[in-house]
Design a protein around this nucleic acid. Sequence first.
DNA 1: GAAAAAAATTGAACTAGTTCAACTCTTTGT
DNA 2: ACAAAGAGTTGAACTAGTTCAATTTTTTTC
Lengths: 188, 188
Amino acid sequence: MNELLKQNINKHVQFSASELEEFCKYFQLKTFKKKEHLLKQGDVCKFEGFVLNGCFRIFTLDQKGSDNTLYFAARDWWLMDNDSFMHQNPSHLNMQALEDSEVLMISRTDKLMLYEKLPIVEKLFRVMSQKALVAWQRRLIRNHCETAKERYQNFLSTYPSIASKITDKQMASYLGITHEFLSKIKKQ
Amino acid sequence: MNELLKQNINKHVQFSASELEEFCKYFQLKTFKKKEHLLKQGDVCKFEGFVLNGCFRIFTLDQKGSDNTLYFAARDWWLMDNDSFMHQNPSHLNMQALEDSEVLMISRTDKLMLYEKLPIVEKLFRVMSQKALVAWQRRLIRNHCETAKERYQNFLSTYPSIASKITDKQMASYLGITHEFLSKIKKQ
DNA sequence: GAAAAAAATTGAACTAGTTCAACTCTTTGT
DNA sequence: ACAAAGAGTTGAACTAGTTCAATTTTTTTC
């Protein structure tokens, strides 16, 4: 049932079969209807998730109502708010299902327990965080040196399956441009 | 001598005195003259560093020659290229001293050994990476929803001691604008 | 301490991306 | 199946930020 999770873990760090079992047994399957929130800004984050099916959008809303998409999490992606999870302060993030979705979720209590009990879990998240860090640094640089059109085309070719699931408004919010301008880019 | 390093570590994860000793003894003091590179793009990264004194600029240069500053590392900051360090591929980053600087450096070999020998080191870098991740996500959002002027003013008030060490060109490269435009912002 | 190199300033013309408003097309809920 | 809400398109006027080129100021080097 959570074969996908096990494969995902082993892409980052080599777990033994028993470590995999022990770690994965704390994950519970939850389903989310389209538009349902896994996390709402203001909530304190008490869970982390791994997407089995469907797709989520992770975004912030600021005072002026401006909507900023941090990333999309489709099948085989992790969902976490490191800030709120770590410090147990109110989250700045929203995680909303873009379609009916299935997520394997682990509670904060269990995860903290597993960090202690199973040292390789520290390594797993250390490695995943370091990889994510590299990706965020690259994205920031691309935002500086590429035009909106280039970023749009790169997104289409890098994440075609996500691109097909999201609206143009959500795409524009990810790219950091207005949806009107995205519409003009597409016309060309 | 490396009190600062020990304090920095304990800000993230509580080490015992003996763990601190054991971890810190693998760091060696190196000095860098102004303009000297700790890492050059194309090199494979075999060290990580912790700045004791001075300041570094971490930046990329792309094909078109455009210069992008990822961050500045002054006293009490870490210097690492996670990508090249992890995969041992040629780095995309440059780390250059902006003034004469002192850095405590640890070799890749020693660090990998310490991950094995001292499990709390995994935790340290897991926690540091997760905090850094949060900071990078915030920076990306700010780049989308704030004007260049706002970002400039925020930088000045958040990092006044760094601001005083860098040229306007380097500041502009960090903000993602041209130095001509920064000059116009300052005039107002 | 003079010469050379690099950094900063300024202006004019330009362009990528925004804003606002009107309209159409598609999806959703009942 | 209909009404209502949301998503996408288009155009016109605008603005934040760029580009290029000339000039001045500051820093570096020998």
